[in-house]
Design a protein around this nucleic acid. Structure first.
Lengths: 154, 154
DNA sequence: TTATAAAACTTTAAGCTTGAAATAATGGCC
DNA sequence: GGCCATTATTTCAAGCTTAAAGTTTTATAA
């Protein structure tokens, strides 16, 4: 979805907006992915999972992770598997329900993430450098405002 | 990159903006992907390639496609291979340079794309329904304005 | 010329991603 | 208790994606 509208007409402005939105996020995403790889030998999906877990020290269910990250269940399984094998994440069995397990960062994972997150924030600040903090707040508000349109869809 | 900032401080507003941008585009992208699959049995990457080719009836080089779509060379090879095997796209040998070939839509591909693109535009109009055309133009302008920051970075 | 570098692609290995099917455990309900 | 739907997760096949290595062709230039 990176190409432009193929003709003129009503509704084209929204299509243009969508295309710009997509190009912007893809460009930034590609740059962040590359830096995560080069500087920390990790990936964006791993970073995403660790970021989610960092916010929930008590842990998260696989389905929580999947819902929060907007990706499929099976996807999360694979990423968590790899993080576990790297010692950054652990699955804790639960007494109540043997179908589920709480996933949380190990101590090593938590330390590791804190370092990456700091760099990550600086990168984003740099990549969005010519958006003033005011503009950033304004844009964020606009994005928030039209979020309601698809909220709860997925 | 879907999680929120892990603490407060300067630069946080840009991080919040980035996270909202990413969530917005991922949500819309997921919805479009699902509809492309259900309604037309195709995928977003295929649609992207076809959209690019539709704009260039004379054809595009693989490297043009790759640059335009912001994806790697090898990636485009695979997608075009599949589109060729489906009869939607063709590689035309060139006399001048035997390393390259012009990739373009077949007649079937062109017809097929036109139908999908019409639906696609309606979907985007619907998903961004509560952004007025005015707001859309305004947001588009803002996104364009801070594009210069990473322009040409790739 | 004829090496040698550069350009355009393709191939490969590893990982990400989805949707669908399979497993396993739980929670009603008779 | 025993059946049955539901829930939570994993597995699977197919396709997407990248970076890096490999191939073929073209351009440079000594």
């Amino acid at each position: 979805m990176v190409a432009g509208p193929t003709s003129a007409g009503p509704g084209k402005d929204r299509l243009r907006l969508w295309i710009r939105l997509l190009r912007a996020s893809r460009t930034i995403e590609a740059e962040l992915r590359e830096r995560l790889k080069k500087e920390f030998d990790t990936t964006l999906p791993r970073f995403d999972v660790m970021a989610a877990l960092y916010r929930s020290p008590e842990g998260m269910l696989m389905s929580d992770l999947s819902r929060f990250l907007l990706v499929s269940n099976g996807n999360v399984t694979g990423i968590v598997d790899r993080l576990v094998s790297e010692g950054l994440v652990m699955r804790a069995r639960r007494n109540g329900d043997r179908r589920t397990s709480m996933v949380r960062l190990t101590e090593q994972g938590s330390k590791s993430f804190a370092a990456i997150a700091a760099a990550h924030e600086n990168w984003v600040g740099e990549l969005l450098g010519n958006v003033s903090e005011d503009e950033a707040r304004q844009l964020t508000g606009m994005l928030k405002s039209f979020r309601s349109n698809w909220e709860g869809r997925e």
